[in-house]
């Protein structure tokens, strides 16, 4: 029984259809060049090559819960090196988006950071660099929020003193309403993140 839950033969199909850039892995020849490219490879549980292999093997839970898909720094080394020109980065981002959308928060802070970032883009059209860390810190709960705020207070103050923090809150761009309409449409039309 347990085995059946973990082994989903249709997972590859699901990835091709619902994950942004998911179909790109069809070209992967498992050479492993990309594995040596990730800056955070020593902290990853599976290198990208193995993630792609696991997709083919139908290991749905392992892939969507992998730390690796959340630890891409967007350095583009893989895309430059892959002999098959596979945009490994886009697949990793696509998988991360797909996993987060299903509530899987393997790297909670990174997921919250990215989600808050996007929420702010949607709300304002811009990023408020003061507000963003605050929201991320407090997304983890009040006490956690206070702790994190204190941990980074020294840095915030230094930035402020050196005129590298805007004092006023960021305002919405003028075209915010029309931007949101465009983004709503893209959210509906886009492939990535469609329900399984």
């Amino acid at each position: 029984m347990e085995k059946n839950v973990n082994y989903d033969p249709s997972f590859a199909q699901e990835v091709f259809e619902n994950v942004d850039a998911g179909e790109e892995i069809k070209m992967c020849m498992n050479c492993g060049v990309c594995a040596g490219s990730c800056p955070l490879r020593f902290n990853m549980d599976y290198p990208p090559r193995q993630i792609f292999q696991m997709i083919r093997l139908g290991k749905r839970e392992e892939v969507l819960n992998a730390k690796s898909i959340m630890l891409c720094t967007s350095c583009y080394t893989c895309k430059v090196r892959c002999p098959r020109s596979i945009p490994v980065i886009d697949v990793m981002h696509g998988l991360a988006h797909y996993a987060i959308k299903q509530g899987i928060l393997t790297r909670r802070d990174t997921a919250n950071f990215g989600r808050e970032f996007w929420n702010q883009v949607y709300r304002l059209g811009r990023i408020d660099e003061k507000d963003l860390p605050r929201r991320v810190f407090f997304a983890a709960g009040f006490i956690e929020g206070i702790k994190s705020t204190l941990k980074y207070l020294d840095m915030g103050l230094k930035l402020l003193l050196h005129r590298r923090m805007k004092l006023l809150p960021e305002r919405k761009i003028k075209g915010i309403q029309s931007l949101r309409k465009m983004l709503d449409k893209a959210e509906k039309m886009g492939k990535g993140g469609a329900a399984a």
């Binding site: 720094t73 988006h97 950071f113 990215g114 996007w118 886009g190």
Partner: peptide, 26 residues
Amino acid sequence: EDWNCCGASVSYAGANDLSIKVLNAR
């Protein structure tokens, strides 16, 4: 005039690929 944020490299957590492209295309 009235530019918007590019979404940087972390927006994929909250947005699909097309949304990020449209954001930049604006």
